[in-house]
Design a protein around this nucleic acid. Structure first.
Length: 259
DNA sequence: AATTACAACAACCGCAGTCGG
DNA sequence: GCCGACTGCGGTTGTTGTAAT
């Protein structure tokens, strides 16, 4: 395939954008949209290649971008999502409103990778639902997600998930210091969207990719032993090939998982 | 004050996927 | 089905700001 010549070869400008260029690009897109990135710079009167314009718009000028530092919650969320999705920055960005894949990638390389390295021994892991997990640290963030070893149709899965939701919501989920913790059903199972199911359907996806069914981590503030048990019950009504997994993030280094 | 080292982030590059002719 | 144009993504590099020496 013949590659389109790069900006430099075409005598186009490279490097940082000036406020004037930004203004021209924003004005043009607000008036006419960005139907064809390649044609846009010429029509807008910019000495840039379409690729550069697109990147500038997507990563910086788009009105729905949230500027500023990442909150602790956002960083934790990136760590959790990266644990599950790997370097799929755009997939991670899709779950962080207002943040771009580039921004997330940068924050990962500059902050989070280091943070994880510093916290080596930190209890971060994925545990299948029939494993008993003992965590001797506090606090612990942890989320539950659905995992499939094979592509699953959204319709089938959704109906099975619905029936499971009731069961799970009514059950006692966790114990700590012999104290029973009931989790609110609404928080536990947020509404599922079609996009996420598409990941299951996409044959190019690694079958390891998981569907987050509870993606707002909740925190255990207790100081002693946390035991997650009887978890296999939760998966009982799932169709074959689907499993519940836990994703666990804790600050300490005393993490053991049971048999 | 000058220089160096490092962090943060913006931007670029090349590849792969998609789409239309 | 093939080809080329186009887009999106992820890895990498370049630039800028700031702290340390």
């Amino acid at each position: 395939m013949v590659r389109a010549p790069c900006c430099e070869k075409m005598g186009l400008k490279k490097g940082p954008w000036t406020p004037e260029e930004d203004k021209i690009l924003v004005n043009y897109i607000q008036l006419y949209g960005h139907g064809n990135w390649r044609a846009l710079p010429k029509q807008a009167g910019l000495l840039r290649c379409g690729k550069s314009c697109r990147l500038r718009w997507i990563n910086y000028l788009r009105p729905d971008i949230k500027r500023g530092n990442f909150s602790k919650e956002e960083e934790d969320r990136i760590i959790m999502l990266h644990e599950m999705l790997g370097n799929r920055w755009s997939a991670i960005a899709a779950r962080l409103p207002g943040r771009t894949d580039n921004e997330i990638k940068n924050v990962w390389h500059t902050h989070l990778k280091k943070r994880l390295k510093q916290n080596q021994g930190q209890c971060i892991g994925n545990f299948k639902s029939d494993q008993i997990l003992e965590i001797e640290t506090t606090p612990v963030n942890f989320s539950i997600y659905l995992r499939s070893d094979s592509p699953v149709s959204p319709q089938q899965s959704y109906s099975d998930m619905s029936s499971s939701t009731v069961t799970i919501g009514e059950q006692t989920n966790f114990t700590s210091n012999n104290e029973i913790i009931n989790l609110p059903e609404d928080d536990f199972f947020p509404e599922m969207d079609g996009n996420f199911w598409a990941e299951f359907e996409n044959p190019s996806m690694n079958s390891e990719i998981s569907r987050v069914i509870h993606d707002q981590e909740f925190q255990f503030p207790m100081s002693a032993l946390t035991t997650i048990e009887d978890a296999s019950d939760y998966g009982a009504e799932l169709e074959e090939g689907l499993e519940f997994w836990y994703n666990v993030i804790g600050p300490g280094n005393d993490c053991t998982k049971g048999p």
